[in-house]
C-alpha cells in the first residue's frame, strides 16, 4: 500500500493547510504534486489512444482535478484553491515541454524526459512553443511590478477560471479584475510582439 500513490493521502492535506496559510514552499510542493499527476495522466492517455490523437489540456486538468479530489476527498477547500495550484502546474508542464522542444530543435542536450512524448500529444508546434516560452518569461517580468495582473492571467489562461471565479478568489470585484486583466494582457502582447497569435484555442 505504501506505493499506492506517489503522494500519500495525508500529504496533500498537510500541504494545503500550509499553503493556505501562506507557506510558499508548501504551495510549490503542491504544484509538484499536480504537475506529476498531469504528466502521468498525459502519459497514460497516450498509451491507450491512437498516435496523433490530440490530448486536450482541458481533459488533462480535469482528470488531474478529479483524481486528486477523489484521492483526497474533501480536503481541497474549494475548486478555486485547486485551480490556483493547477494553473501554476499547468503553466510549468507546458512551458517545460516547450523549452525542451526548442532545445531539441536547436541541437542542444536532450535530457532524459520519459514523459516528453506524452506531452507531445498536446501537439505544440514550434511557433507555439516559442510563444509559450516568451509568454512565461514576460509573465515573470510582469509579476515584478504587477503581481495581481500576472496572477489573473495565469488563473484564466492556464487555469481556465472565469473573471467571476477569479474575483471571488481574490476577494475583489469583477470590474476590478477586468481592468487589471485588460491592462496586463495589453502589456504582455506588446512584450511578445512577433510571437503573438499562435496560442489561442489550443487543445480546448
Amino acid at each position: 500500500m505504501a506505493d499506492a500513490h506517489p503522494h500519500d493521502d495525508g500529504e496533500i492535506t498537510r500541504l494545503l493547510h500550509a499553503a493556505s496559510g501562506g507557506d510558499r514552499e508548501a504551495f510549490g510542493r503542491l504544484v509538484g504534486v499536480v504537475y506529476d499527476e498531469l504528466t502521468r495522466i498525459a502519459h497514460g492517455r497516450l498509451r491507450v489512444e491512437p498516435v496523433g490523437h490530440t490530448l486536450g489540456t482541458t481533459g488533462l486538468v480535469h482528470e488531474a482535478y478529479l483524481r486528486l479530489a477523489a484521492q483526497e476527498r474533501a480536503n481541497w477547500q474549494n475548486r478555486e484553491q485547486f485551480f490556483a495550484v493547477a494553473s501554476e502546474a499547468m503553466r510549468r508542464v507546458l512551458v517545460d515541454h516547450a523549452r525542451r522542444r526548442l532545445r531539441g530543435k536547436r541541437g542542444g542536450h536532450v535530457e532524459h524526459v520519459p514523459l516528453d512524448d506524452a506531452i507531445d500529444a498536446v501537439a505544440l508546434t514550434d511557433a507555439q512553443s516559442e510563444e509559450l516560452v516568451a509568454l512565461d518569461d514576460a509573465l515573470t517580468r510582469l509579476a515584478a511590478f504587477n503581481p495581481e495582473g500576472a496572477r489573473i492571467v495565469q488563473l484564466h489562461f492556464f487555469g481556465g477560471l472565469s473573471q467571476g471565479d477569479i474575483a471571488t478568489m481574490l476577494d475583489s470585484s469583477e470590474r476590478t479584475v477586468r481592468r487589471q486583466w485588460s491592462a496586463a494582457r495589453a502589456w504582455l502582447r506588446r512584450e511578445l510582439r512577433g510571437n503573438v497569435g499562435t496560442l489561442t484555442g489550443l487543445g480546448a
Binding site: 480535469h62 482535478y65 492556464f158 487555469g159 489561442t200
Partner: peptide
C-alpha cells in the same frame, strides 16, 4: 488591435 488576446484559456473548467 487584439482585444481577444489570451482570452481563450488553454484550459476550461466545468
Amino acid at each position: 488591435t487584439d482585444p481577444e488576446y489570451l482570452a481563450h484559456p488553454l484550459v476550461e473548467v466545468p
